[in-house]
Amino acid sequence: MNFEDDKQKNKRLSQLLSVTEKNVAGPDKKFLDKLQEKSTAEFMASCANKNSKTTLPIWRIIMKSNITKFAAAAIIIVVVILSISLWDKSNSTAYAFEQTLEAFRDVQTIHLFGRDLRDSNFEMWVQLNSDTGMPDYCRLYTPSDNYLAVSRPDKSYQYNEKTNRVQITSGMLLGHMEFAPAYMFEELIKYSKMENTDIKVDINYEHDPESDKTLILAIYETPIEKWKIFIDPDTKLPVRLNLLSETHRMGLVFKDVDKIEYNLDFPEGIFDFEIPEGAQVIEQ
């Protein structure tokens, strides 16, 4: 195509791109005014002192769209119930799930070890986008499957060491590579505010001999899966997860996550991928 900058060609491109104006309504002033109020409050809340005991406001203007449907993809889920205060048995310190959401705001990287549904060990590295909390970069390695996946915003790679085959995809990989606990955390806050949901949560405590801490334990159940989530009482971040049952296999990968580390300095080039010599390359 020859879109050189001359009048006729610009006119045609303008025609083509102008189709995006089709069926687009003008701005809704009422909506914009309401959003101005909410976003300003969010801005002021985010600027407030972190040590403040003010509850973090999580507001949403309820819209009619389906965009906030709970995803069935394999993403580690942190249970959130607002306004529940829990007392740690050892030192009577109050805990609320808002603290976990707040703690995730400072998370830039996540490193985890676990097993998938076939009991294969995996190791995963995730770098989160500081604006959205969604993963920008992700690396997943499953040694028993000889499988390596590197998900990047521009291009993603899936490599099988045994067959020396690389599959290249434009953009990020979907599914379990979209590991964004803060994002799912916010979605669950929304669900927890809705009535007549099928989501159940039980909270308890369990002593962890390895860390010698009493961890906060949440058992979280939906119609399609049931999880145990262990939360560190000091950092307020999840440190271990176990899938107890699931009925919807599509895209679900994680079964046990034994160790989660936050904000480590990753090695240089951890999200780069060099095509091995002689590899068969398939571009999608």
Partner: peptide
């Protein structure tokens, strides 16, 4: 042109922007 979908995305955008 679905107003609800557009509204959701605009809302998510400005709330994310407000936080950062």
């Amino acid at each position: 042109g679905d107003a609800a979908t557009v509204g959701d995305i605009v809302q998510e955008t400005f709330l994310a922007a407000a936080r950062s």
